[in-house]
Every structure is written in C-alpha cells, then in structure tokens.
Nucleic acid binder design. Sequence first.
RNA 1: GCUCGGGUGGCGAAACUGGCAGACGCAUGGGACUUAAAAUCCCAAGAGGCGAAAUCCUCAUGUGGGUUCGAUCCCCACCCCGAGCACCA
Length: 820
Amino acid sequence: MTVDATTYQPDVVEAKWLARWAEKGTNQPDLDHPPSPFYNLMMFPYPSAEGLHVGNMFAFTGSDVFGRFKRLQGYDVFEPIGFDAFGIHSENHAIKVGIHPAKLIPQNISNFRRQLERIGGMFDWRHEVSTTDPDYYKWTQWLFLQLFKAGKAYKKRAAVNWCPNDKTVLANEQVENGRCERCGAVVEQRFLEQWFFRITEYAERLLKNLDTIDWSETTRTAQRNWIGRSEGAEIAFPVVTGDSRPVASAATSSPLGITVFTTRPDTLFGATFMVLAPEHPMVRHLTTPDRKTEVEAYVQAAASKDLVSRKVGEREKTGVFLGSSAINPATGKPVPVWIADYVLMEYGTGAIMAVPAHDERDFEFARKYGLDIVRVLAKEGESAGTPVETAEPGEEGHKLVNSGQFDGLPAEQGKRAIIDWLVSNGKGNGRVQYRLHDWCISRQRYWGPPIPMIYCDDCGAVPVPEKDLPVLLPPIEDFRPDDSGVSPLARHGEWYYVACPKCGKKGRRETDVSDTFLDSSWYFLRYPSTEFRDRPFDPARTRTWCPVTTYIGGNEHAVLHLLYSRFMTMVLHDLGHLQFEEPFARFRAHGLIVKDGAKMSKTKGNIVVPDQYISQWGADTFRMYLMFLGPFQEGGDFRDAGINGPRRFLDRVWGMVGSAAIQTDLPRDLVARWHRTKRKVTEDLEALHYNTAIAALMELVNALKEADSHSLAIIEDLVIMLAPFAPHFAEESWERLGHGSSVFDARWPVWEDSLIVEDEIEIPVQVNGKTRSKIRIPLGAEEKAVVAIALKDPTTARFVDNKPLRKVIYVPNRLLNLVV
RNA sequence: GCUCGGGUGGCGAAACUGGCAGACGCAUGGGACUUAAAAUCCCAAGAGGCGAAAUCCUCAUGUGGGUUCGAUCCCCACCCCGAGCACCA
C-alpha cells in the first residue's frame, strides 16, 4: 500500500498499519517471559445487537491510550479483550427478533470485533474470550464446584425477587426501586429454592481491603455503602404472654425471648415497645387468641405485597398489636409487642426495640397508635421532662436522661456503658451487622451455564464430577422462559434425566443456569491462559500477569461485578489457587458519555454509532476527539461539533513531519517548552488526564510554528507522545521520519528539569491584593531585590504612590504582593 | 431523606488543592490567497466602561456571608444539575 506523503489520508494510513500490526504480531507480548509485564484491562463488553456506541468507544479508547503509553514506557503490555455474551440481555433480544441466541451472539461478536479493530485497539486477539464458549464456561462450572465443595455455596428456599416479565429471579443488586433493572417491570416476592454464595462471610475482609487497593475513591465509597457495616448491640427482651406470665428468662439464647439488633444501645431506656417483621418466627407464639384474626390478616397482606409497595410505596406506617408483651431489660417494665412491615426480616434479627423519642419511624408509629414516648437523650437546654415534639436522633452533645444509673453520661459514653452492662448481666452483646446479603446465583433461564448439580432421590444434591464438565447447554429451540419458576431446560427430558454420579440411579439435573456475574467474576484470570484446555488458569501465567495492573471500567459496576470479582478472588486465594486476594491492583472508573444530558440507550433512541465518524474522519482523529472532549474520568455530552479541531491538528503535524530537519541552534524558550511538554504529557497520561495532555501537545505544535522551527528531535518526540492517541498516524509518521521499526518500540521521551526552568521569569505584582503589573526577575531572586525591581516599575509605582509599605508578601518565583 | 460527584465565556473546557481566572480547542468576526467557494494562513475576542491610544478602569468562577495580603480552591448557610442508596433499626 502506498501512502501519499503530501496529504494526510487516514483511511489509507489506517488500513496499512492494521495490516502491518497483524502481520508482525505487534500487539502480542511474550506471555511466558516478559521482562516487565503490565496487564492493562478494560471491562469486557456485552455484545449487543446495536454494536459499540460512542460511549463504549470513549471508554475503550481511554483504556487503550493507557496501555499504549505503558508500552512506550517499555512495559510488556498485555491488553486482552473478550465478550460477556451470556445473560438475560442477549436472551431477551434473541426472543424478540426470533433468532436463537447461539446464532445471534456470534454475529454480534463479529461486529464488535470489527469495530474494536477499526478503532485501533492494541488487543491481543490470540487471547480473546467468550463466556459462552464451552471451553470457558466449563471453568465457570468448575468454579461453582469448588465453592460447593468448600461449603461456600448452599441451597435454600428463600424469598427472592421475581421479575414477572423476564420470568427470572433477580439478585438484590439487580432490583432498582422495586423494579427490574433490565425491563422495568415491578418485581414480586416469590419463594424458590436457590443457590447462594456465602459472600457475607467475606464482608469484613471485602471492607477492610478497600483501604489497601488503589481504586477510584467513588468506587470504594460505593462498595463501603453497599457492604453497609453498622456497629451496635444485640439485646434480648424476655417475653411475657398475654396474661403477663413470663415464659422466658433473660438469656439471649432463650427460644421465647426476642433478640433485637440496634445501633443505638444508648437509647435502651427509651424502648417503649417492640416491632417484629411480619415474617418473624415468633409471631405465632406471641399472638394471643383474641388478636389472631387481625394478626393473620396483616401477615397475609404483607406477604402478598410486592416489593414496591412494601419498600417504596406510601410510607404510612401500619402494624398490629400481638397481644403479648416483652420486658425491657433495662427498665424492667413490660413493653407491648407489635408487628409492622417497616421492619424487614432480612436485616438484623428481624425485630427491633422501638425508641419513639429518638427514631423517626418509631415516632411516627407511636403517634399513630398512641404508644408511650419517653425521652432518654437531652441536649443543652433540655431536661428529662422536656416534651418530645419530633424524633431527635442526635448523639453529639446529647446526654442520657431517664436512664437510671446512666443518667448524665454523654450519648457516646452511655452507649459503651450500656453495652458493658448488658454483657455483664447476660442480657446482650456488642455486634456488627452488615447490609450485604449472600449472592443468589440461580437464574430460571436458558442462556447461561447450567449449574453442575444432579439431584438423586437417595443421595440428594450431588455435584457433577469435574471430569464430566462442561455440562453443555443443550441446543434447544424452545428456550423461552415461562411462569412456572422452573428453567426451560426442565422441559427437555433427554437432558434433564441423568444417572446419579454417586449411585447410578436415575437422577435429575439442576435446571437453573448461573448468573452472568459469575461468568464475569473470573474472566481476567482466563485471558493469559486461554490456550490451556486442561486448567482454568495456568499457575505460572497467573503469577506472571495477575493481579491486573490497571483496570478501567464504568462505575455502573462499582458494586456488582467489582465486588463479586473480589469475592471470587478471595475464595480462590483461600482455596490455594491464587497467591493474591485482590484481583485489580489499580482501578479507575471512566466517565459516561451522555447524549443531550441522558445516558445513551436504545429505549431513549439516542445512541450515537461511531462508525460514520470513523469512516469520515479516521480512527485516529476520532480517538483524539473523544479523549479531548473532556476529562476521561468525568465523561461529557457528545456533540460532533469540534471534531475538525483534532483533525486540523493532525494535518498540521503531518506537514511538519514532512519538513522535519536537524536543527542545532534551538531557541532557549522553545527547548524549555519542549521539555515542559514531555513532563506534562507523561504526568497527565499517568493520571488519565488525556484532555490536558492533548492540549499540551497542541501548545508544543503552536510553539514550533511560532519559532518557525522544524526540529527533527522535537518532532520525533511529538510523534511518540502522539502515538497513544493516534497510533496509526504515529506509525506512519515514524516511518516517514526514516525509522524502520514500529514507533511502539521507540523510547518514551525523557525530560530534563534543568532545561525547563528559564533564568528570567515574569511574575505578577499585586498592590493590596490586586494584580497591577508584571515584572521580570532573575530566577530565585531574593525578596529585597524583587521589591526593588517592582518599585522601579512605573505602573507599580503609580499604585504604591509613595506610601510606606505596610506588608510585603513574596511567594518565591510566583508573585509579589505589596500592601500599602 | 442519606452518601458521593459537579455548577467557570456563545460552546467543550484549563488553572501547582490559596497566588496573573479562562490554557487548549470549537463556533464567531475581520483580513490574505482565490474568478468564486472550500481548504489553508494571519489577526481579534470574558462582559462592560473611559478613551486617539493601552502597559487604563470596573465587574466577573451558581447565590449570600466569613477567613486571608490574596479565594474557582478553605469555612458556614442556601439554590440547581448528575449518579448511587433508600423504612438497614
């Protein structure tokens, strides 16, 4: 292919270098013996039918820029790519267009592959991964078996979120405001047998390790909130029946005591009633005969309510008195026991001590049902007798009142003192509670890896032997889910019935498939080891390349994918498969490209396809445009206005490359600019500040023009620094500059600090804090000398007006402020 | 309601986390080249004011206060936008 040197023709240049890279294996590092490995990872995409939109391109380009930068710094960069192709998304789309996902997905993938190649990604295609490939999901199933054997996977009948439209169970994380994250249908409560992973066992570690990893702060905060650690106490309330006979001792373990969790043990004396979740097992024991009808009706109503009205709907508190009472262990007084649906069975113990004076919800409830309200905290100016007008949750500056021997203690101290008292009297314990729930991985769908379990009437749940993996997803035509709560796979007897691996009798396969997030919780371990068919990840390869050096992705996965990956890595570490327990050493969340202020989505019809821009302007221009449009970690609104800016810039550089020549007598300030640019671009790329790095390169080009310089040395550096952004362009320019090898084998420019500083600098002079003039001073001049120079300056002198200097502020080499 | 971001020219944005606000780019206006247009190149430009002139003046970083010689940056109160969580005891 010949390239016309007089004009920059992106299409010709880009085609030439795509071919050259493929031919020479430029993007394929030596995976076995890399001197300095760098695993540069981007979250793999889900191959939708629409292809990659400009938002995706923005993210992929940003990650690729970083990988190319590291490559130029001399690292052996491994930048793999793959496809997260299982899951409800794909399946629903397949159902809609009436084509089997097994046929549809490969089409989508090849479209994605075309787009990702065209944008110039430095991908090592030898290591492409698709989660739908039996060679891949064999190991996803293997992973399940490891967790099962280690007791980290268990089955339980549980209330689950059921999406009536997608006809499947959703994880808590996939429910948004009581609606299905994918289709928006109102989620219902159902009881089904589900497989869970014990992620809650890892809550403390998942939380603690957050302090040790180099991640975007926003992502870490999101995970912290999601894990939701609360410190408090567990307190036992002995129970009294309807006729006031005590039926249980104060012991926490008493079957007829009610144990509550509270973060505010300091308010124990103010607990004037108790509330249980309607599903609480104690409800039937505590319901007196006269209350039975009413209580049962309430329990019934709560159970049939969908999650929307239970959690999000009108928040008017409702509840029913059970007829029984419990004893407040601090006051010794009986307190009535109620049920109400604002208390949730999933959190804490499913029961609370209600302190209406200091909790908004309890206050509202007490007001409505005429229950006692006792103040136990008072701030400055309040006393034990001050009436409670609204709930006052405050702790700071509050002291305990109406609290017996604890009166007068500040709230924080009172909290500790009461816990100590509870512990020494066997009435309670300090306790930490998490919001995090175990991970439900069962999905009653078709398009996923079958969970590798077999049920036998004699042996129970038996894992599929590892040698029989993968359990292939059968290519059935009738894959639509139905309302039965059972996966479509159950309808296919030839697959469903199978010999029990233990006893050989007729058994039945587990018909649920696993959650897509299980697929993606370990894919980064697979990339370096794709050619090994007999192991999920090769120990030597994994040691060389993992954990991932830099991971870039969207913050929409801040809690789901990123938390599950961390969990999976910890489990594999504990089982002896991995040496590290955190999968991603450095994570940076990229910003979102929105269109007209809204996230791009098919439903909104605001998806911008990049293909047209790439064919019109070239991939390099488009890459630069995306990276220049705003801060990478913040994103921005997509407008095509301004795309000609980067193109003009490349045209200009194209011309400069053609006229580059050795130049020995470079002006001092141009040299300074050159070195300053090298420093700035290096530092900006390291920090993912791509927009300002590009601006710095533009300034360098402007400076060259200003000085009418065609310095070969500077232009060579310019081309190298441009290479992460405009790789094809840089390759061609490098060749035109007479180099025989790839620009990515060139050395990243180094700067000299001594050449950046100039001997004479200009600083602003302020009089009374207002900038009035500018003076030139020798670098590092003393304050006295600088003041003398300033006073000689006519403008400054005019403002000083011969008044005595009251104060002089001199920030060396930066600014002088004279106060008169 | 709670937790994170964010609010700067006509537009996208910069600004060592206290030191010349608006770099870089888009769009715009004027000029050169051209038969003409496009492209390219040069010049101008935050708003307003006084002027013949600018090395002049005033006002400007969502609003109102505060700290400081000096605030886009720190503190207090508030308004708006975006994201996440949401009856979590």
